[in-house]
Amino acid sequence: MSIDPSSIPNFGGQPDPEQNGPAASAVIPDQDLVKQLLEQMELKFVVDDEGDLAAPWEEFRAYFMFRGEEDQQIFAVRTFYDRPYTVDDKPQLHEVIDDWNRRTLWPKVYTHTHDDGSVRLIGEAQMLIGLGVNLEHFVSSTVSWVRASIEFDKWVVETLGLEKDVDADGGAKGDEGTNGDDA
């Protein structure tokens, strides 16, 4: 998915730090701010049963979560990749995701083994927001994390030589870069 930087929203203009001091440009992000950002990025999203925002794609879901107490609150983008692997695949998966984690800043990716024995990949990026964060930093970080989550999915398919469904035109399904109509 390609995000046009001009699509990053201007949330009513930021206060002039010289007029109001350095803390004036700091905000404490909330779910409404993330919803505005996702709408501006033209990403479909839902609110799940736990109250978290989720943006579904064909092969994964990205969740936008707020956790923790006031001054220690964390904002996380956690991506659950739906492609199942077996326990026997774990050594190869660990090699591949170790390579990704060494080369990139985010998302950090790890494996999770379900009770049924299937293994899934999970990516995560976090930011401490409890005392406030610069709005521009928050927006650009969130956009970058979404982009990186999408890039990881493409990268792991290439790296592991996984076959993707091919549509009638011969292109890989889901390469359009949108998060589909399944929201």
Rank of each mutant, 00 (worst) to 15 (best):
D165V: 14
L160N: 07
R147L: 08
E136Y: 04
E151W: 05
I150G: 01
L160V: 04
V156Y: 08
V146M: 09
T142N: 02
I150S: 02
W155D: 04
V156D: 00
S141H: 01
S140Y: 13
D153Q: 05
I150M: 02
K164F: 04
R147E: 11
S141D: 01
V157F: 03
R147D: 09
R147M: 10
V139M: 14
D153C: 01
T159R: 15
L160S: 05
F138Q: 07
V139T: 12
S149H: 04
A148N: 11
D165K: 15
E136H: 09
V146D: 04
E151C: 00
H137V: 15
K154P: 02
H137E: 12
V139C: 07
L162E: 03
S144C: 07
V143C: 11
V139Q: 14
S149E: 00
K164A: 13
H137S: 14
H137N: 13
L162S: 05
K164C: 11
F152M: 09
L162M: 15
G161K: 10
S141C: 06
L160A: 06
A148S: 14
K164Q: 15
W155Q: 01
T159E: 15
E158W: 11
F138Y: 08
S144T: 12
F138C: 07
S140M: 13
S149D: 10
E158D: 14
F138I: 10
W155A: 03
D165M: 14
S140F: 13
A148M: 10
S140W: 10
L162T: 06
E158P: 11
T159G: 05
I150T: 00
E163I: 05
S144K: 05
V146K: 01
F152L: 06
G161E: 06
D165Y: 12
S141N: 12
K154W: 06
K154S: 08
W145Q: 08
K164R: 15
E163F: 07
E136F: 09
V156H: 10
F138K: 02
E158V: 06
S140K: 12
E163C: 08
F138S: 00
T159V: 13
V146F: 02
F152V: 10
F152S: 05
V157T: 13
L160H: 09
E136D: 13
R147S: 14
F152D: 08
S140Q: 12
K154R: 12
L162Q: 04
V139W: 02
L162P: 02
W155C: 00
L162K: 00
V139K: 14
R147P: 00
R147W: 08
D153R: 03
E163Y: 07
E151R: 04
G161V: 13
E151L: 06
D165F: 14
T142V: 14
A148L: 05
W155S: 00
K164G: 08
V139Y: 00
D153A: 01
T142I: 06
G161S: 09
T142C: 04
V146P: 00
D165L: 14
F138H: 03
D153S: 02
S144E: 07
T142S: 11
S149M: 05
V139L: 15
V143A: 13
E158L: 08
V157Y: 00
E136M: 10
D153M: 04
W155N: 02
V139D: 06
D153V: 03
R147Y: 10
V156S: 08
E158G: 04
V146A: 06
S140T: 14
K164N: 13
I150F: 07
